[in-house]
Simulated scan of single mutants.
Amino acid sequence: MKRLFGLFSKGQGPPPSPSGGASLPCVGAASELCEKELGKLHRAAASSDLARVRRPWWLPRLGINRRDKAKRTPLHLACANGHSEVVSYLVGNKCKLDPRDNFKRSPLMKAVQCQQEECVAILLAHGADPNLADVNGSTALHLAAIAPNTSLAGQLLEHNARIDARNEMGYTPLALAVSEHHEEMVEFLLKKGADV
């Protein structure tokens, strides 16, 4: 284990994170949303107003897959904020599961980034793709490794996430966990068969 953590200490420095070197903030959380830039359905999904989301004329009129300026759908915002009831409702009404925002992040990736386990479980159960890559080539498993959240990583692996996927910098989830000194995540990924 110490040998793994020493990989990036010999003059190399840690690999850049998938977000370009910064920690991964949960952008899209209700506290960071600019209300006037969002449509009614986006606002309702972001604030967990299920009664408004359920209005019978809203989905056909406003568009269940309508995008905001950042190309996020209501599902992105509900996932980022952990509103599992809204996520279940949207998924049950046949919204697209894998639309991508400006950073090519899917709702599943937003849920993982914001550590919303219930939303992740709902999306995976309905067939969301755990192997999509964002603008940096990082998958949901890369985001779980950086978080670090072994429970989310386990859910993703149970739904066929590629354990040795490489981002644009060539780093696997294991390499990112090592670079961030997330020992529990490193042990977890090694037990699950990650390639050293």
Rank of each mutant, 00 (worst) to 15 (best):
L97N: 02
W57H: 13
D101F: 07
L33A: 02
N149G: 11
S84E: 13
S138Q: 04
P99Y: 03
S84Y: 06
P15V: 13
I64K: 09
H142W: 03
I146M: 15
N81R: 06
S47G: 12
N65Q: 03
C95Q: 07
W58T: 09
Y89T: 05
D164W: 05
A165K: 03
R72P: 05
A30H: 07
K10G: 12
K191Y: 05
L176I: 05
S47T: 08
A78K: 00
A140Y: 05
D195W: 13
P15C: 09
N160Y: 12
N131C: 12
R162L: 08
S179Q: 08
F5D: 07
N131G: 14
P173L: 01
K10S: 15
G170Y: 05
V53E: 02
L7M: 14
I146W: 12
A78F: 02
I122P: 10
N131H: 04
R55S: 13
G11K: 06
E187L: 10
C79V: 04
E184V: 15
M169Y: 10
S106M: 04
L75F: 00
V112S: 04
L189G: 06
V53C: 03
M169S: 15
D134W: 02
T73R: 01
A144T: 03
S31I: 07
E168W: 05
E180C: 15
S17A: 08
A30M: 06
C95D: 03
G82W: 04
P56F: 08
M109F: 03
P74G: 02
H42Q: 02
K2G: 13
V178L: 08
S47M: 10
S9E: 14
H142P: 08
R166H: 07
P74R: 01
D129A: 11
M169K: 14
S48R: 02
V53P: 04
L123T: 00
A194K: 05
S179L: 10
D134V: 03
A144I: 02
D49I: 01
V27R: 13
S151D: 10
R54S: 11
D195F: 11
A30P: 11
E35H: 14
L141S: 02
R54M: 10
P60Q: 06
E184G: 10
D101T: 00
A80M: 04
P60I: 09
P14E: 11
V27L: 14
P107S: 04
S47N: 15
P25R: 06
R166L: 05
G63D: 11
T139C: 04
R54Q: 08
V27T: 10
L90A: 02
M1H: 09
S9H: 08
V53R: 01
A128H: 00
R105Y: 05
I122Q: 07
T139M: 05
I64F: 09
G21W: 07
